[in-house]
Amino acid sequence: MNIIVCVKQVPDILEVSVDKETNTLIREGVDSVINPFDLYAVEEGLRLKEQYGGQVYVLSMGPPQAIATLRQGLSLGAERGILLSDIGFAGADTLATSYTLAKAVKKIGHFDLVICGRQAVDGDTAHVGPSLAEKLGVPHVSCVIKIHEVTEEYMIAERITEDAKEKVKLSLPGLITVCKGINEPRFPSLKWKINAARTRVEVWSAHDIGADESKIGLKGSPTRVVKMTTPQHHRAGQMLEGPVGEQVADLVSKLRERQVL
């Protein structure tokens, strides 16, 4: 089966913090990494390939530095890495992003399955997977935690919801987004690392994928960020002093006053 895995390069979100004085992000020393959810997507693609045969392609959109992320995909065992990079793609929201990815998938040609991580940790929207499925005109299942069976026509996947696990039969070609817990991503092997170092990551421009200029990047994005602020969540906290016994007694009486005890 031919599998396309979409990956994104993101700042290591746990390292990002805000400079309290200037209200801006401190970016120095923050590494770019592959979106953690995408690692599960790559791993699941590789496992399906190993079980059913075929090829895994990794696809990303981003600045030229994102080649490193595709190389990481190659070093895990993907056959081909494609980066969509073009100044015209800049400023894309999830709609423009899924349009762009869809154009690239169509250029790749035949596929059986597209796998995306459930969401990217920098944007946290979980939009691109379903939106891409729509643009490709294929069905999708979100939040897949297990794949039970794959045939040429369909796959049976288990998705996770707030209170249940649901077994869904999805006709192929289709798209799934995967959750943490679906697998344990492997470490790159020497063989695939060498392969990655020796495989050229293809870089496609807007022209290469035949994208309509009005549908990519900022122009193709209906949404627009108009303001960035630092979250204000200050409360006038009351410090409870004294030895532990007093602190606790004080707290209890305060909570009773406010009728939560």
Binding site: T94, L95, T125, P130, S131, E134, K135, C143, E162, P222
Partner: peptide, 23 residues
């Protein structure tokens, strides 16, 4: 923004070619 909403809304927005803001 439930598991249903998160799966449905982007698909709808994509078909309508309009903007969607999450969470």
């Amino acid at each position: 923004a439930t598991s249903i909403g998160r799966s449905l809304a982007p698909r709808v927005a994509s078909r309508l070619e309009t903007g969607l803001t999450a969470d």
